[in-house]
Amino acid sequence: MEELLLGSFLSAMATGAGALPILFFKAVTHRWRDILLAFTAGIMMAAATFGLIPQALESDSFLIVCIGVVTGTLVLTVLESIVPHIDLEHTRINIAMDTQALLILSAITLHNIPEGLSVGVSYSSEQAGLGGLIAFAIGLQNAPEGFLVALFLINQRVSRLKAFFLATMTGAVEIVAAVLGYSLSGIIDGLVPYGLSFAAGAMLFIVYKELIPESHGDGHARSATFSFIVGLLVMIGLTDWLK
């Protein structure tokens, strides 16, 4: 449990770490943002396909893995359809810090819940080091998200300190979700392979629906592609090293 709490805390607080630069400057070049997003996509792709799915297959059947992956994908699809989703980097609409902006923050927080569940279920797995790997992958994804959320809030005339705090809090929900996922895995027999597969489906959805398109939207597709491959290889190397 101590490892879970530490891993989920560091993963969640990566959102705040990503938002920290907003206290000192207001922008980052599109090129470096795209490179970071693509690197994160590679990390998460490898975590799902070389960490979560193989472990789920070892624990149960291919059918269970298919059910879990499809369920994770569908849950993220439903979340995206029922809560507002705004490209925080490209939106040019000045939304006041009122109900609409709070709704956007709530939507981002909701999207973080499956990520926290992924961390919790991974720590309940029998594979040594899997929880830390998934927490690392999710944390990398949280960092640029935290920066963009804080930047969005500053553009809505929210103070820098308050923007940093609110961005950090959107990631804090992952700690609660991680504990919940870990606890449920210990209570319900046979939940771990479902949970691992669910986490893989959720991560693959984020990679293909969010990270890859965003990293290719500003004319830096080639740099982003190489960054994706490097991220993929880094995570494969970490997975092999921790076996």
Rank of each mutant, 00 (worst) to 15 (best):
S11Q: 04
A12T: 10
A12K: 00
A14F: 12
L20H: 04
F24H: 08
F25S: 12
T29Q: 08
R31E: 10
R33I: 11
D34Q: 08
L36A: 15
L36S: 15
L37K: 00
A41R: 00
G42P: 05
I43P: 06
A46K: 02
A46S: 13
A47N: 06
T49H: 06
G51I: 05
L57F: 02
S59M: 15
S61R: 05
V69E: 02
L79F: 12
P84I: 05
P84C: 02
L88A: 03
M97T: 02
M97R: 11
L102V: 06
L103F: 10
I104T: 00
H111A: 11
I113N: 10
L117D: 04
S118V: 08
G120A: 05
S124W: 05
G129F: 08
L130K: 04
L130P: 04
G131W: 00
G131Q: 02
I134S: 01
A137W: 11
G139V: 07
L140Q: 09
L140A: 12
L140S: 11
Q141Y: 10
L148N: 07
V149I: 14
A150I: 05
L153N: 08
N155T: 07
N155K: 14
Q156V: 00
V158Y: 00
S159T: 13
L161G: 14
F165A: 14
T168K: 08
T168S: 14
G171H: 04
A172D: 05
I175L: 09
A177L: 02
S183F: 03
S183Y: 08
L184C: 07
V192M: 05
P193F: 00
G195T: 05
L196I: 11
A202G: 14
M203P: 01
E210K: 09
E214S: 07
H216Q: 13
G217S: 15
R222M: 14
A224D: 07
F228A: 08
I229F: 15
G231H: 08
V234L: 13
D240K: 08
